[in-house]
Nucleic acid binder design. Structure first.
Lengths: 157, 157
DNA sequence: GCTGACGTACTCGGATAACGTTTGTCCGAGTCCGATAGG
DNA sequence: CCTATCGGACTCGGACAAACGTTATCCGAGTACGTCAGC
């Protein structure tokens, strides 16, 4: 039960990208966060495929959010990078073994899968309730008012 | 974001073990579910280490629940097999890079980690609310009243 | 002076290796039951 | 007939490989800007 480490990077990138329409190159974002440039590029590609960011090629190109930060939930970023598949995958154990239940006798999903599905939905709902704008506001409140503006200035230097 | 497949096996084992104090060998449980005996043994060992089941050695030995099924939550089984560590691990990205925040300026946890932690708690709370007895009752209701008694009879044949 | 085309440098994107974790397997230590021999 | 001892077989437990997924990396395709020649 482990989430991809790229999720954290992707979220941080979305936060610093919020509020500025200027495209920022992946290499710049990587240098800012002091992480592997090539691997961060992979995460940004995933965000691009999901339609959360728009990529611009050529000089002065880079990545920018496609929507206002207030309209992007944390869940979307997580699902874009880590995948939208539920953590639990039912293998229909009931239908195996000497006393296997007939497939038609099995209500879908089975009790175990239902519990896991409910927990998964609770988890996703919790992430859906928070937006990138909320995260940015939190940074402003806890670390300092000028933190994000300074970051944006550095990124678009 | 993927849960260990052994969790499903462990839960099914707990369900069929509920209600009978008789120890059941791991090999028998594996045959019943038609899964790898050696690997299932590994999961049962994890449950044993967590104190959810008690192992008895020698002839007529095996595994049995230590507590009534109504007092064992699904969460306990999941944490015993899949580990209790949260899925998200904060690497303190804020403290890296050219504009790194000073460690003392960072409130713990940071906004991102806080959101992830809340989602994790929601997930766990959802799993904590269901017990093995609930799962057993669901089987009785959906598949058939005699399903579990027949399974127990087969296991202790 | 203006316009068009060209070259260049910079960007992303997908295909390609290395590592770690999970999955799967094996054999050894420990223990209980049954058989057996003695009282 | 009862009891203590011994043998055997069955059990779990931890240590040992293989496979998958994640992590990390590279090079090629595409595009926008700046330059330069022509009108």
């Amino acid at each position: 039960m482990k989430m991809s480490g790229g999720v954290e990077w992707g979220l941080h990138c979305c936060v610093v990208l919020s509020g500025s329409g200027e495209p920022v190159p992946a290499a710049r974002l990587a240098e800012f966060h002091d992480v592997s440039a090539t691997y961060l590029a992979k995460q940004l590609q995933a965000l691009s495929r999901a339609g959360l960011v728009r990529s611009t090629q050529g000089q002065a190109g880079g990545y920018a959010l496609t929507r206002p930060a207030a309209e992007i939930s944390v869940l979307e970023v997580v699902e874009a990078i880590d995948g939208a598949d539920p953590a639990f995958r039912c293998t229909e154990v009931r239908q195996r073994g000497p006393l296997a239940a007939a497939p038609e006798a099995c209500t879908r999903p089975c009790g175990i899968a239902a519990v896991m599905g409910a927990a998964d939905r609770a988890w996703r709902e919790s992430l859906r309730a928070v937006t990138i704008a909320d995260l940015a506001a939190d940074v402003t409140r806890t670390v300092g008012v000028d933190t994000l503006p300074r970051a944006r200035a550095w990124l678009t230097r």
